[in-house]
């Protein structure tokens, strides 16, 4: 289709509102973090609640230390995703800390839970790895660090609930292939390197199928004896 015809077709579908955006009356934008992070929430949803795009995860309510570590890792290139690396490239620690605090403090409603599309056997495998791990293969239980309720631990172990299956799968894959790394010792890289493709599918399906509890807060720092040293989590 020629550009002209294509544009005409698009315009036929455009609903014209008369200046939908309110005219600005103030001289300055609001002096709030919400206004400063519009560059984040356009993809991650208002207040960082997540969107229906599985690769833009929810940020709201994750522990601030975890969010800060990710922001630093994106800025310094330890975690590779070019649009994030680009946005954060020239931001000082102090501002990244404010961004992390802002999203950690938000508590918007969770999106509807996904219905798993994998077999009961795979779900059982995912549940087993989550709750018990697999000692023979050197895989600790998710619950051992992320806490038995899977809502994370302060200050930097995130909760695992309310995340889309594809996102969890992509993160475990990114650790396995080295495009997502954390401060050494990189415990999640060690864990992910023991997982098979099937394990990843099972874990992603199981975790994304779980309901998010009403009180999804993290347990305090030091509540759990972690089975692996983690550079990103002070203990």
């Amino acid at each position: 289709m020629s550009p002209m015809r294509r544009l005409a077709a698009i315009l036929a579908g455009v609903v014209f509102s008369s200046h939908a955006a309110a005219a600005q009356t103030g001289d300055h934008p609001p002096d709030t973090m919400a206004a400063r992070v519009l560059g984040c929430t356009s993809c991650h949803g208002a207040q960082g609640r997540g969107t229906d795009n599985d690769y833009f995860p929810r940020l709201a309510g994750k522990p601030s230390g975890y969010l800060y570590n990710q922001l630093v890792a994106f800025r310094d290139g330890r975690r590779r995703y070019p649009p994030m690396n680009y946005l954060l490239e020239f931001q000082p620690d102090s501002f990244l800390r404010l961004i992390a605090d802002y999203f950690a403090e938000q508590n918007p409603p969770f999106p509807p839970r996904a219905t798993p599309v994998v077999s009961p056997e795979l779900l059982a495998l995912g549940r087993g790895l989550t709750v018990n791990g697999d000692v023979a293969r050197g895989i600790p239980a998710c619950a051992s660090c992320h806490n038995p309720r899977l809502t994370g631990m302060q200050p930097a172990v995130p909760g695992l609930l309310g995340l889309p299956s594809d996102y969890i799968s992509a993160q475990l894959g990114a650790w396995r292939y080295g495009t997502r790394t954390s401060a050494e010792p990189d415990c999640m890289q060690m864990v992910a390197s023991h997982l098979t493709e099937t394990d990843v599918t099972a874990l992603s399906a199981w975790l994304s199928s779980l309901p998010v509890p009403v009180n999804a807060t993290q347990v305090p720092q030091g509540s759990l004896a972690m089975p692996l040293p983690c550079g990103s989590q002070p203990n």
Partner: peptide, 14 residues
């Protein structure tokens, strides 16, 4: 950029 004169910048969405 987050500078001494603009420590808390406002970002534009992609």
């Amino acid at each position: 950029p987050g500078t001494f004169g603009n420590l808390k910048p406002y970002g534009m969405p992609p």
